[in-house]
Design a protein around this nucleic acid. Sequence first.
DNA 1: GTCTATTCTCGTACACCGTACGGAATAAAG
DNA 2: CTTTATTCCGTACGGTGTACGAGAATAGAC
Lengths: 242, 242
Amino acid sequence: MSEPVSSDGTPGTTGVDPAQLWLRSGEPRRGRRPSFSREAITAAAVALADAEGLEAVTMRRVAAEIGAGVMSLYSYAPDKETLLELMVDHVSGELTAPAPPSGDWRADLKAIAHTQRAHMLRHPWLPAALSTRRVPGPNTLAFLEHTLAVLRPTGLDGAAKLEIFAQLTAFVAGHVAHEVAQAAVSRSPDRAAAEARYLAAVAADGHHPELAEALSAPVRPVTAEATFTRFLGRLIDGLDTE
Amino acid sequence: MSEPVSSDGTPGTTGVDPAQLWLRSGEPRRGRRPSFSREAITAAAVALADAEGLEAVTMRRVAAEIGAGVMSLYSYAPDKETLLELMVDHVSGELTAPAPPSGDWRADLKAIAHTQRAHMLRHPWLPAALSTRRVPGPNTLAFLEHTLAVLRPTGLDGAAKLEIFAQLTAFVAGHVAHEVAQAAVSRSPDRAAAEARYLAAVAADGHHPELAEALSAPVRPVTAEATFTRFLGRLIDGLDTE
DNA sequence: GTCTATTCTCGTACACCGTACGGAATAAAG
DNA sequence: CTTTATTCCGTACGGTGTACGAGAATAGAC
């Protein structure tokens, strides 16, 4: 009875029952045996996204990659949206806890954030894929469990801890999205030059004195990592235990 | 000579020369007079995105909305990607400075962030549209100019100020993306119930004691606004003037 | 063995997408 | 007038996600 698209502006988050997706029960001991596996399909899709970006992940390409017919994929995932969910949780399997919780929860949280950043840099499509809300799969839940354990010494209540996890993830995703986009521009010299020329022209129009001054300063080289660490520190050091 | 898609994973940020897009010179006083305008097309696209989400913005829908043939749009924007850029800058026109810089730059920055949040809530497709890096248009630049002015008392150098603007925007976008996704789930009771059932099942499996405890706590109602304000405060109060 | 129920495989088809192409319409310049 | 520049847009092409249904493969019932 639910609409395929909500009546307002939000995208059609019809979605599949998460329990049926992640907690699917025992094997159906009848009928033709599967030729492929959800795992293999997901891995192929991830490899494709890593190598050529998210938009290269089409049902046809994925099917071709594993030598299946296109429609065969639909025996393993009800639609492409779900395949994306599978991809996200699949790569989250790499997110093993960097270390068991020490006593210093702030340091642990920072380590977690750095792990997430490295993870997203390894899979640059992740921030975009995460932006549409998804139900956490088993691997994501394992990582969440670790984070909650790290936050135990804070004495915060459950809701607050979950909130911190969500905010931290959103922060890292936002940062990495910006970081990779920036890197993509820098990698194309003519594009970067065109952008610099444009900004210089704007700065010269007299209506943007602050911008003009900001751009006139010599560009000191800073690594993206350093910037991340600095902002992360501000965010986490500002957290207080109640 | 530039490739339509970079060789690695990043999406094809071919892009148009920003100067030609935003700084286009005088009128071409020859040939048939335009029946439409970039402004009207952009406004129609924005209205569509506001009402039905970003994925409702197709060239055909936009054209139909203003009573044009599909291909006529390409006289005003070279491709859909560019139309998205136009949309982003168009709505940024609403981002007038909330107030001239007071002396308290932290308070001003917080006001800016709240303005941005309200703006993105009004146009929930914005975080997604912003995630792919774009060259700032005139309206975005005006807002940037205001932010730089607010940051003047910090005495930070240009690069640091620009960094703060980028990070703040990314933070707000990340937060709002999460916020609207969360709201979309809550708005569909059966979806929310299914999710709760799933998480309860996971919590009951014995492998997620921290999650079980976090979920068992009574859910105290907190507004998204309060959460935003809290995290924003942490981020901004942590900024220091070098 | 045969039959039947169940499951997976996948070719075909459809609606929709972005947009290249080129001709018709329009308006100013020579 | 003719020329030239510009906009309008119907048609068409290659791509997308996926509904449908026929066929193949397997397991249990008899």
